[in-house]
Amino acid sequence: SSTTTSELSLLEYRRYGRQLLVPQLVENSSSPTEAQLSLKNAKVLVVGAGGLGSPALLYLAASGVGQIGIVDPDTVDMSNLHRQIIHSTTTLDFPKVQSAALAMKNINPFCQVTTYHEPLNNLNSWSIVENYDVVLDCTDTPQSRYLINDACVVAGKPLVSGSGIRTEGQLSIFNHLNGPCYRCFFPNPPAPNSVTACSDAGVIGPCIGLIGTMMAVECLKILTHHYTQDNFKPFMTMYNGFSEQGSQSLRTFKMRGRKADCLSCGDAKKITREDIEAGKINYSQFCGTNIDRYDVIDYKTQQVSI
């Protein structure tokens, strides 16, 4: 829906020169210039400008992704700042999308940022998602994760999904190259009665930041055509910042493929745009609880769920 460019300015070559020397980034393009143009002409949507979104947004803006959308209904709170490094004490109480956009324009004025200061919901999800090429799920509730997944499947967009708590994190790519979607991995949401055990979680800034940083790497891979039908295998990568083996660990699990009976991406494609927009899929009800009880960290009570 918008024009694409086929040229880079001298300023852009200066700015991005260091990354265009990396063979892995340019090897699936006809030239380094073309690889950078794949970023410049790309539109990436990041849902959530918190602990995951902070480094993801900064690195994607810095790398030259041309258009980045940010969705977040929240404002910057003091308790965010130990980990949400895109925000600042000078933007306390700003909408997070605006605070993030300021930082992104500061690091790279070439980046066009679109902000959505609202929650992603049944009514707006499809119409927002359809404008982008890749979506990053940087949110923190099961509801939002199912909703984003369904919108991405309906709109045909690959989804980079990250999450984390305490010292651990998880990363997957969904709905890419005929691979599985979030619902294929998790056909049923966690039961509400499983939400009470860990009243003492929390999160370490650079641990959740590492997952957001990995999400940026995966997004760059998708945009520069690193993954192909041949080499893409469904995976979940699990991070632990305080590994028993000393230091930090990443483990990559080999995961199931697309499931023919998946409600979202399966052969019957039972969930449609109309269903979502008409509210036929009630994500709060589906998840068996109201949205607050599913917050991983409830900022009021400091109660935590897994």
Binding site: D140, I165, I208
Partner: peptide, 28 residues
């Protein structure tokens, strides 16, 4: 490897198998 690829509940254990259980994380 995802247990779905291995037979889920009916998978017959072998010596030295490592079975990993992990909560899905939702935080961000």
């Amino acid at each position: 490897v995802d247990w779905e690829l291995e037979g889920e509940l009916e998978y017959e254990l072998e010596h030295k198998d490592v079975v990993t259980f992990t909560s899905t994380l939702h935080g961000g």
